[in-house]
């Protein structure tokens, strides 16, 4: 059976209101294994709300979430992580005083074998080796695995945050505006990373305001507007004008 038949993560008719504002209004969304889905929309369209709902950071008013075909309840980010759903937040969520290895394994430390491990001692060498592998795997140039993350450049910290998410994601990675603060070369690296992650069979959900990046890397593009899912396109047969039109409501797109 091909893994591409069942969406790895699927949202069916999910809604969420904040007071009188319907941030998500009966939205359907799915991502298949080994696929990059771009989630686009103007500010306030509900992109971040959708990501929060699907990564366990936000409770739903109604609707269902299915993981690999089975219904799940995601009430904490840790629950989502346990299933294999990882999120790179816009603020990266790294601990600036810890080093890249400690950030990589935060909450998932490798204990030393035997009694020492039971007493809480950590196998720092194993974690360092595995982190280096993970960074190399992504082509991320993270220097100084012992230096605090806070002393590193924005691009390096972005790389660490993405590497962490990718390393632990078995099913889906959400990337919330991963290129917003990056330079040309770093952006290229991130887009390359997205392709590599997809090639490993992980579903990637990519939020961006940058239409060229969206067009370059996505397989499918889903457009949100005012909390509704207004259109979905195959990246291969749409245009930037069409996407902008759907985002702003100038045209009502369809599948």
């Amino acid at each position: 059976m091909s893994t591409g038949d069942v969406p790895v993560l699927q949202a069916l008719g999910i809604s969420r209101s904040f007071g009188h504002v319907r941030a998500l209004d009966n939205v359907d969304f799915e991502v298949y294994p080994g696929e990059v889905v771009a989630l686009i929309g103007d500010n306030g369209a509900g992109k971040s709300t959708l990501v929060k709902a699907l990564s366990g950071s936000l409770a739903l008013d109604s609707g269902k979430i299915l993981y690999a075909g089975g219904e799940v309840t995601l009430s904490t980010p840790a629950q989502a992580s346990a299933l294999g759903i990882e999120t790179v937040y816009q603020d990266l969520a790294l601990a600036p005083h810890l080093n890249p290895v400690q950030n990589m394994f935060l909450g998932r430390e490798v204990p030393k074998p035997g009694l020492q491990g039971k007493l809480g001692f950590l196998d720092n060498k194993a974690m360092r080796d595995r982190s280096r592998l993970a960074f190399d795997d992504l082509g991320a140039t993270v220097r100084g695995l012992g230096d605090p993350v806070g002393s590193m450049s924005g691009g390096q910290r972005q790389a660490i945050a993405i590497a962490r998410a990718v390393n632990w994601a078995k099913g889906v990675v959400f990337l919330d505006e991963p290129t917003a603060a990056l330079g040309v070369v770093q952006t290229k690296n991130v887009l390359e990373t997205i392709r590599r992650v997809r090639d490993k069979g992980v579903g990637v959900v990519f939020i961006s305001h940058s239409m060229p990046h969206v067009m370059e890397v996505s397989d499918r593009i889903q457009v949100l507007r005012l909390g509704r899912s207004v259109a979905a396109y195959k990246a291969s047969n749409t245009s930037m004008e069409e996407l902008v039109g759907a985002m702003t409501g100038a045209i009502g797109g369809d599948k």
């Binding site: 980010p77 600036p96 005083h97 950590l122």
Partner: peptide
Amino acid sequence: IILHRTRFGLYTFAVGSNEEAVRRVGV
């Protein structure tokens, strides 16, 4: 030793460094 060598110590630093990030990874 507890502060500088164990997971408990690591979490102590991590909570002081970025509490929200530590919460998100399920600690």
